[in-house]
Nucleic acid binder design. Structure first.
Lengths: 214, 214
DNA sequence: GGCCTTGCTAAGCGCTCGCTCACCTTCGGC
DNA sequence: GCCGAAGGTGAGCGAGCGCTTAGCAAGGCC
């Protein structure tokens, strides 16, 4: 299984780039708390407590509570874009690349559900400047997926009525995995990824099956 | 266009069942505020202000802020179930009924985006008892859609790998409309409903087109 | 050994939150 | 014209919020 996320230069430890260690502990604690209760319902005391520190320690490493959300959101979106971009630009037919993109993206949303929830659903809690930066990253995600679909249409592999709408629906389907996964059913991230890749290929009217990719 | 929502006994004024009028005004104000900022970021002063009343007036009609969310969520879910049930139990082939269910359900999420956002995304802000009641309604929504898909398979109209997973994906796709609609693109609720009905029929491998339904 | 710098804590500031309470209208019944 | 109920208000309570500040322990440098 040589799929997008292993070859994207991504770390296995998703927050390894955050230093020093105390700042990373606080950030991981914030991800968990935000995913569980939501940004506004999470207190700085809760975050510091989960990291085993006093409330004041948070403000040595971060200027505000919102900066924590901003850094989480930016790193998460960069990772998401990385996954999609790697799948979009690998070799192979549009069918294979779309299946890879969807299964990788879904696996990320299912496996890292805590992170993905924060990344995908707490966007409105950011201030205008931070939100604008993140929205730009999201548009790039959209462009990568739309690119694959347009390639598939040009190559005669896909049959799509509305490229823009179908792109949005494909991304929407993947993103919403972060909301329901692990609440509803007994699937592994791999299983959901495979199922969703099949569903998406049907949505774009792909003519031939992907190359046995999981 | 004789589709689910017109024949479901639903009101055109969605909150008509809430009386007296002051209680309804407060509830409508709460829906708007919750949809804009989220439950936890909304203050009781904000809700009362939007309704043109003093903060204390809220507590004449509702015991707590959470009771407001609970009532909104229950009425909204009952409406959603109503839409799906009407489409599921009308006459017609499984293909026609599924297309009707999806397009009606999507139109409701797109058109009443403020309400749908609260209903679909603020579930975790409810306490355990209220949440359990709402989750039961959601399971009934799931059962209605699964029923149509199983009918379609039995009738040889659909080809589906995983009934439970596909059902979940169909509902997920529709629900997520409440998150992105009116942010991303220039579609009307009708257009999104029609596009999504087509996409979902592809997902279930429907063999013949639906009967010209919008 | 004296002395900064770094990373942290205990205490608490100012503020706003959900919610309450004492009181004030308005109005139908008689 | 008086009365009680229903529906409203202004002021404010206790609690908890995001964030700040004064001070402390530890380690490298001279």
């Amino acid at each position: 299984m040589s799929t997008a996320e292993e070859t994207a230069g991504g770390e296995m430890q998703p927050w390894a780039e955050v230093t020093p260690e105390a700042a990373r502990r606080l950030l991981v604690a914030a991800v968990e708390a935000f995913a569980e209760r939501g940004y506004h319902a999470t207190t700085t005391r809760d975050i510091a407590g989960r990291a085993g520190m006093s409330p004041a320690a948070l403000y040595i490493h971060y200027k505000t509570k919102e900066e924590l959300l901003h850094r989480i959101s930016r790193i998460g979106h960069e990772r998401a874009l990385d996954i999609l971009r790697t799948a979009a630009r690998r070799e192979g037919t549009a069918t294979e690349r779309l299946a890879d993109a969807v299964s990788s993206f879904v696996r990320w949303h299912a496996g890292g559900r805590t992170t993905a929830r924060v990344v995908q659903y707490e966007l409105d809690s950011l201030g205008p400047d931070a939100r604008a930066e993140i929205v730009a990253l999201r548009r790039q995600c959209d462009a990568e997926v739309r690119g694959i679909i347009e390639d598939g249409i040009a190559a005669g592999e896909f049959e799509v009525l509305d490229v823009r709408g179908t792109t949005l629906a494909v991304l929407s389907l993947c993103i919403d995995v972060a909301r329901w996964f692990n609440i509803a059913g007994p699937w592994t991230p791999d299983e959901v990824g495979a199922l969703y890749a099949d569903l998406v290929l049907r949505m774009v009217g792909a003519h031939k099956a992907p190359a046995a990719g999981k």
